Amino acid sequence: MNTKTYRYPSVLTIAGFDGSGGAGIQADIKTISALGCYATSALTALPVQNTQGVKAIYPIPYHTVQDQLVTILDDIFPDAIKIGMVHTGELVDTIVDTLAEYAQTPVVFDPVMVATSGDKLIEDKTITTIVERLFPMAAVITPNMDEAAILAEMPVRTLDDLYVAGLKIRKLGCQSVLLKGGHLDAPRLTSLYFDAQGTVHEFGFTKSETNNTHGSGCTLSSAIASYIALRNSLLEAVRKGQEYVYQAILHGSDVQVGKGNGPLNHFFNPQKLTKYDLV
């Protein structure tokens, strides 16, 4: 007799590895789990890194990425998908073409393009492919100020710059944009969410004096995807995702993990796995 009457809201993360546990798929799985969702994953790359930086990156073959996605999607179909760093146009095509074969589910895309050092991580032709193919399928993209500067082709240093850049990025074909103001030189950090209707929503948080922010972008995009899976509206998911990251930074600010930029405290308030009726 089948006694299974419930299911968990699931979130699929498509991202790279972080052996130090603070970013990438590790941060995604921690975030999704801490918020009461069930995490599945597909690995796109194997960076060798710790809290002090990336030593090397070993790519995963594209057919292997496709095989991972098909195997998961055929068995545990997600309520939301988070996509992290995609470092080549071929990888973008692999992901987009594979997901196109399945019913549409909300996608949160974190367009990782710039390293903490300021160095670009991907080539211009890859950025073009991302804009043309990934942007249209994403419910929301979450660039930081450095990435916004690349996408908008302008300096982004102030809150006024964020407003101008956001309007430019919206015209690139994405459904909505969350511009993260974490690098603003101000005591209060402001992020801007440009929704699908053209309304701009402003979110502000007090700046935390800590370098324990490794993986904050991965964590935010995963948190937004998790809140979508938990049946929040996109605007509420964006709001709650930012609040979660703020609290995770705050609760991890006094802890040393490694010798460089430490991780967030993803489990400052872990939730039990949510159960939905099985239909």
Rank of each mutant, 00 (worst) to 15 (best):
E123Q: 15
V11G: 11
G258P: 03
Y102I: 12
E236H: 10
L178W: 01
N232Q: 14
L159T: 13
R157W: 01
A229S: 12
V112L: 06
I83E: 01
P155H: 13
S253L: 15
I81G: 03
R231Y: 01
P61R: 09
G217V: 00
G19F: 05
T274D: 02
S176E: 04
T71P: 02
H266F: 04
P59D: 12
F268T: 06
R188V: 15
I127D: 04
Y246M: 08
G182T: 09
L235Q: 14
N212K: 08
N232I: 01
L134D: 02
N211S: 14
E243T: 13
L178S: 00
P47F: 00
R133M: 15
D110F: 05
T116V: 08
F17V: 05
Y8E: 06
K82G: 06
L178A: 00
L230P: 00
Y193P: 00
A223R: 04
T40G: 10
T129K: 10
I224L: 01
G84F: 06
I72R: 07
A148E: 08
F268N: 07
E236P: 00
P59Y: 12
D161A: 13
H251D: 14
L134V: 15
D160I: 09
G181L: 00
P61K: 09
A27H: 07
I81Y: 03
A237N: 03
I127K: 06
M154K: 11
N2L: 10
Q52V: 10
I25A: 09
Y227W: 12
F77Q: 11
L43P: 11
G24Q: 04
A42E: 11
G241D: 00
D93S: 15
A186N: 12
K55F: 13
V156H: 07
A165G: 10
V48A: 14
R188L: 04
T206F: 00
Q197Y: 05
G118K: 13
L172H: 09
H214V: 12
Q68C: 11
P143N: 07
A15I: 10
E132I: 09
T44D: 09
D74C: 14
Q175V: 01
